[in-house]
């Protein structure tokens, strides 16, 4: 466990140097939210009615929070780097090292988002207060309660993305699968909440990991309820266990294939 802490510390240190650059990357976030604010202003019009049970402010804050997760975790470590290691054969040198490759990559990923995510959250928070205004009925306690949900969600995302990268053991290019996962995340959970979809589809979407990655944390922050909280935490525990299971299964199979075929 200690060595993973050292890895984590080094990554955080290395990433601190890029702090300014990460902040510049906020421009993209700003522009996307800017578009979303215009979009939802247009959609809600002057009426002040609810859409799918959300007020305009709740809707925009929902999108802002999911986009924070999206941007805060957007590193190439679990995607390009891992897939690259497998594709170019570097992995053969890394599996003999005294750490578990998958855990090493996940640690690195954690180090990266623990710098990126807070920067985005802080900047986005300021932007939201200025351009959208505070949420009515928001309690700071919800923020504290939602923190573990956020961390779990981000971790589950990393586990799934890394699992997809491990497909590179079998196909030349795992990137296309990565896009599909991203788009699923984007369309079903990020740009609007689950409740916007037709009712018959909703239970189906609830069974996807998206529910635990972005919907969960964002929903709890804009509209906290104890039942939802427990439901989402349970779903996250389940998904983390399943995700890690899939990850280790793919990894072990892949490494076995490597030994048989010699890379």
């Amino acid at each position: 466990m200690r060595k993973y802490m050292v890895v984590y510390r080094s990554v955080v240190m290395e990433h601190l140097q890029y702090g300014a650059q990460i902040a510049v990357g906020f421009i993209s976030y700003f522009i996307i939210i800017f578009i979303q604010i215009y979009l939802w202003n247009y959609m809600y019009g002057e009426s002040g009615a609810l859409i799918a049970g959300y007020t305009k402010q709740q809707m925009i804050w929902y999108v802002m929070i999911t986009e924070i997760i999206w941007f805060g975790t957007r590193t190439t470590t679990v995607t390009k780097q891992a897939a690259g290691d497998i594709k170019n054969g570097n992995i053969a040198y890394m599996i003999n090292k005294p750490y578990h490759y998958a855990l090493y990559i996940l640690t690195k990923y954690t180090g990266e988002w623990s710098i990126r995510l807070p920067i985005y959250a802080a900047l986005a928070g300021c932007m939201g207060m200025l351009m959208v205004g505070g949420l009515s009925g928001f309690r700071p306690a919800a923020l504290i309660a939602a923190l573990p949900v956020m961390i779990l969600g981000v971790t589950i995302n990393g586990v799934f993305k890394l699992s997809i990268s491990l497909i590179s053991f079998w196909t030349e290019d795992s990137n296309p699968f990565q896009w599909l996962y991203d788009k699923l995340l984007l369309v079903i959970g990020t740009i609007f909440p689950l409740e916007v979809f037709p009712v018959p589809l909703q239970p189906l979407f609830k069974m996807t990991p998206i529910y635990t990655v972005c919907y969960g944390p964002a929903k709890l922050l804009v509209d906290f309820s104890r039942e939802k909280y427990i439901e989402i935490l349970l779903a996250q525990a389940l998904y983390l266990a399943c995700g890690l299971g899939v990850l280790f299964l793919l990894y072990n199979r892949g490494v076995k294939k490597l030994y048989v075929n010699g890379g």
Binding site: M13, E14, L16, Q17, G19, A20
Partner: peptide, 13 residues
Amino acid sequence: QKEKGMAGSLKAV
């Protein structure tokens, strides 16, 4: 140039 350790990283920023 960058000095060693976390302090060095911060300074280099």
